[in-house]
Computed example of a mutant assay.
Amino acid sequence: MGKDAEPLAENIDLAIEARGLVKRFDGTAAVDGVDISVPRGAIYGVLGPNGAGKTTTLRMLLGIIDPDAGYRRVLEHERPTEVARRIGYLPEERGLYPSMKSVEAIAFLAALRGVPLAQGRLRARELLEEAGLSYAADRQIRQLSKGMAQQVQLLGTLVHDPDLVVLDEPFSGLDALNQGRLEQLIRSLAARGATVLFSTHVIAHAERMCDQVAIIAGGKVPFAGPVDVARDRLRPQVRLETRARDGQWRAALPVDARCDLKSGGGAFWYFTLPETGVEPLLRALIEGEAGILSLSIERAGLHDAFVAIAGEAAARALEQPETDAGKERH
């Protein structure tokens, strides 16, 4: 527990709850007042650019480092290290002993969580077979590709059947095929009742996978909650195609509607859905004989929501390669 902390109210529906987490390094705040509530059984994403404070936040939640201020509770315990055997953690810095065979590496990680070595070996072979990696069971880690070695370490994170799985940038370094396999694995973990918390700087992963997200930028969390709530901060966008270009019906369009004229007649119109909804607009278009050829309403995506919440600079940083954006060092 950090300084100036106040106890949280008991809430058994949350796997993780943190309030006001602060961590400074050399006088600089890497994390500055983070609040996070992760429901049990949820897939929860911490979304932000490299260097935003994601890794520091996860390490505080796990008790690897202590906050300078704030309060946390993990699996109903105020000291996360007391429930370490119920947690599976995949750090961003991957690392297995190169000379170990895959099955032994997984069994070793299981032993660190209290699983007898013989049982860990049996479970390791089961997991490798389920993952389609049984052929790699007796290969040394140095003989595996980077993606395969990462999958072995991930299986070692899950071998003791944890209640809470914490993954720091788990998709980093994986090709599209293995990213898809990892997404499927995360969904299966949640389906059996485990809580999954993962950090990422890739919006697509968070949008496809997460029930809820915490958007983090500059060590702060300007939004934490359901993905749909984040997206609903922006009104849907309308794309309208009409046969006519002008008429009384144009008064029903928003004043900032953008028009692209079509060769041969007609036009495309682009605008934000009015607060009154689409029905009054449709009525005016039909009665005014605008000649509706097509109309689509597109809800804002998580990327647009991220820009609106965290700002364009943070959104641009998401797109930068890891070497340019600057990896988090703490």
Rank of each mutant, 00 (worst) to 15 (best):
E76C: 04
E76G: 02
H77P: 00
H77Q: 03
H77L: 01
E78Y: 00
R79D: 00
R79H: 01
P80R: 09
P80V: 11
T81L: 08
T81W: 14
V83M: 14
A84W: 01
A84V: 03
R85V: 01
R86Q: 09
I87E: 02
Y89I: 04
L90H: 10
E93G: 03
E93P: 09
E93Y: 02
R94I: 04
G95E: 10
L96K: 13
P98Q: 08
P98C: 10
K101H: 14
K101V: 00
K101E: 12
S102H: 10
V103I: 06
E104T: 00
A105M: 13
A105V: 08
F108G: 06
F108Y: 13
L109I: 07
L109F: 03
L109H: 03
A110L: 08
A111H: 13
A111Y: 11
A111M: 11
L112F: 13
G114L: 07
G114V: 02
G114K: 05
G114D: 08
P116C: 11
A118N: 11
Q119R: 15
G120P: 13
G120F: 14
R121G: 02
L122Y: 04
R123G: 02
R123V: 03
R123I: 01
A124H: 11
R125L: 15
E126A: 05
L127N: 07
L127P: 03
